[in-house]
Design a binder for these strands. Structure first.
Length: 405
RNA sequence: CAGGGUGUGGCGCAGUUGGUAGCGCGCAGCGUUCGGGACGCUGAGGCCGUCGGUUCAAGUCCGAUCACCCUGACCA
């Protein structure tokens, strides 16, 4: 990508209404644009990051044998009425509208009801199970107060995975596999060392659910953890019973704030029962399907990565999610010429600042935009047949032969 | 939803006791510059969130309304 060709521009100052670090830097660097509170456009650099995050998740889930699909965001109220979740009293963040023909319609805040409804078409025998499907979908939640940049939006991208089983053991087994996969995902996203599986409330059918919480100063959740962080629990389950279950004492726990980057849930019959998702077992008797659901807030994860890595100069992307590996700058006539050649020989890896600007501005933008490595080619470096490579994270520079890049 | 705050060119801001809008950045043109956001000159761009009221006159005063930000509550 050439900076001279893209419509995106960087800003020296963040808009006044963008106060969270992630929102301010992503806006200044040209990754996102705010339409209104909690509603963002993702610009070319922004969707590249999002796609990279999605691909990491996709890769790990496909390894588990999950199948990807895409459901609609528009919701028929019927299945939701069967579970009691279409009412504004039960779920107070619905966006609702009407069909021109008269019926009511909702914008999906989550997809349990429609996926169960969908699977009624395809699951009829124990031979159809187990089964796991996921999608990347835009969710709509009419939050009373959107805030913190892309950490809490009214429209956001979520990966939601649903699994279907004939028995609890099989659900437990798959659930454990997802736990492992999630840990790998957060590691690959660069969040591994700060992200912990956390005990949270489990709803009706399970004592606990598990959240994946990234310790973060701007996080919205309060979590408690023991010395070696082998036990982490959400404030909502901080009670004598939980402490006893987990074998920890309240005095030995410390409190911190964290951002929820994932949540996994054993639903069991919670939705399959009211919606009538059943199968015939070996004896040809009808059984209710066991279910689990597993979410990751993709756009929120992007914001959390920004919050964790960014410094006072701008964004810092882990290589695994960076829109481009290199930010290329040519200085002087020879430097620009050689940079053009480098750009042509590394398709898809390079963000090329080929604008007619002074070097200082390009350096500042490179730091703001946060590619892992800045490459500068100038007369100075060409004298050594090299390019200067600067690590955005550490700030360290070294000369590297261009042929070795 | 409660409390607090803010709406003035693309972005950040100023605007005195009411008299018809200005600065920095950015943008366009010309010239000098060219490894850390350079400089000079010229220029374009705004019915001051919206509606209503007071007044000879409203960015400024009054009322309403909308939007946005922060803290809290909420987060199925």
């Amino acid at each position: 990508m050439r900076l001279s060709k893209t419509f995106v521009k960087t800003l020296r100052e963040a808009p006044k209404d963008e106060t969270a670090k992630n929102g301010a830097l992503l806006t200044r660097a040209g990754y996102i644009h705010k339409e209104m509170a909690g509603v963002y456009d993702f610009l070319p650099l922004g969707i590249r990051v999002m796609e990279n995050i999605k691909n990491i998740i996709r890769d790990e889930l496909n390894k588990l044998g999950c199948e990807e699909l895409q459901m609609t965001a528009l919701q028929n109220p019927e299945p939701w009425e069967k579970t009691g979740r279409f009412s504004d009293q039960a779920v107070d963040i619905w966006f609702k509208t009407n069909l021109a023909s008269g019926g009511e319609l909702g914008l999906a805040p989550t997809h349990e009801e429609p996926i169960v409804n969908l699977m009624k078409t395809y699951i009829s025998s124990y031979k159809d199970l187990p089964l796991s499907v996921y999608q990347f979908q835009t969710k709509f939640r009419n939050e009373l107060r959107a805030k913190s940049g892309i950490l809490r939006g009214r429209e956001f991208l979520m990966k939601d995975l649903y699994s279907f089983h004939t028995n609890e053991e099989d659900l437990d087994k798959f659930y454990a596999e997802v736990e492992v996969a999630y840990k790998k995902i957060y590691e690959r996203l660069g969040l591994g060392e700060d992200t912990f599986e956390t005990f949270a409330s489990g709803g009706i059918f399970s004592k606990y659910s598990h959240e994946f919480q990234t310790f973060l100063p701007v996080g919205e959740d309060d979590v408690y953890y023991n010395a070696d962080k082998s036990v982490v629990l959400n404030k909502e389950v901080l009670n004598p019973e939980t402490l006893n279950d987990l074998g920890v004492k309240e005095e030995e726990l410390q409190q911190t704030t964290a951002a929820e980057v994932g949540n996994i849930f054993k639903l069991k019959f919670k939705y399959s029962e009211p919606l009538g998702l059943k199968y015939s077992d070996e004896q040809n008797s009808q059984q209710v399907v066991y279910m689990g659901c597993y979410g990751i807030g993709v756009s929120r994860v992007m914001g959390v990565i920004v919050e964790k890595y960014a410094d006072d100069k701008g964004l810092v992307w882990p290589e695994s999610v960076a829109p481009f590996k290199y930010h290329l700058i040519g200085i002087g006539e020879n430097g620009m010429k050689r940079a053009e050649e480098f750009y042509a020989s590394h398709p898809g890896e390079v963000l090329f600042d080929d604008r007619d600007l002074r070097p200082g501005e390009k350096f500042a933008d490179a730091e703001l935009m946060g590619m892992p490595y800045r490459i500068v080619i100038s007369d100075k470096t060409l004298a050594e047949d090299s390019a200067e490579v600067t690590d955005r994270g550490t700030g360290e520079s070294r000369l590297v032969k261009i042929s070795e890049l």
